[in-house]
């Protein structure tokens, strides 16, 4: 079932509560009353069409908003992706790290095992952060420059015809970080002896699944919407340059 503007925002959460962090990312908070999606978006000055495409892409992975989403300004998409990054770095990863630290107080767990888990998570954390930083420092500024060049009609001298960074480099960088998260889940599910009191273990696992789902959606948006969008801009700029 697709989420549409006439639905009550409260019903959207009843339909899929995993959407909450996504909705928060738009600055929207709980306490919707009887207001519809459209009304809530208006209250928070959120672009309704953009909001609907993002939540539907997350809600149904087979939903592919090709035509629609690509018509939004790249800047708007990047803003959203950056908020997602902040959520991972400032909220989700520290939260999971905190849960893993709490395991050390668990007396019926082998401290060496906790250490192994902690080290593995730390290395995952730094890989994900490195990946995110690359996007923030190289990819997004590059896209914003492209967008500006197209708006102002200015001809770019060094992009994208030179040896500079083009979007193709970016596509290749995905994947590796995903495998590590996949491994982390399996290590906990299959191989790490669980303490008798497994509540904390369950929470950690649950958080990892949620993080994975969120990351997959993030990558989905980047690969299927952002990359084609940028490729199109690159082509337009090359064309503008050759016409000159």
């Amino acid at each position: 079932m697709l989420i549409n503007k006439e639905m009550k925002m409260a019903d959207v959460i009843h339909l899929n509560h995993h959407l909450l962090p996504i909705i928060n990312r738009f600055g929207i908070q709980l306490g919707f009353g009887e207001r519809t999606v459209q009304e809530v978006c208006k209250d928070y000055a959120v672009n309704l069409d953009f909001f609907l495409e993002i939540v539907n892409t997350f809600h149904d992975p087979s939903y592919f908003p090709l035509r629609h989403l690509r018509s939004f300004a790249p800047g708007m998409l990047i803003d959203y992706l950056q908020k997602t990054h902040l959520y991972y770095l400032k909220i989700k990863l520290p939260e999971i790290a905190q849960y893993i630290r709490q395991l050390t107080t668990n007396t019926d767990m082998d401290p060496n095992h906790v250490q192994l888990l902690q080290d593995f998570f730390t290395s995952y954390e730094s890989e994900l952060s490195a990946h995110i930083n690359r996007e923030e420092q190289r990819v997004y500024p590059y896209i914003r420059t492209l967008e500006k060049a197209l708006q102002t009609g200015a001809v770019m001298t060094d992009y994208p015809t030179s040896e500079a960074y083009t979007i193709h480099h970016y596509e290749e960088e995905h994947d590796d970080v995903e495998s590590k998260l996949f491994d982390l889940k399996n290590i906990i599910i299959k191989y790490l002896p669980s303490p008798v009191e497994s509540r904390l273990f369950n929470i950690i696992l649950h958080e990892l699944f949620e993080l994975e789902k969120d990351l997959n959606n993030h990558a989905h948006i980047e690969d299927l919407i952002l990359v084609p969008m940028v490729e199109k801009m690159e082509k337009e700029l090359i064309k503008a340059k050759s016409n000159q």
Partner: peptide
Amino acid sequence: LGIKTVSGLTVYAIL
């Protein structure tokens, strides 16, 4: 094993 990375395999080997 369902483990893809070298560091994941290392953890498995130690465990």
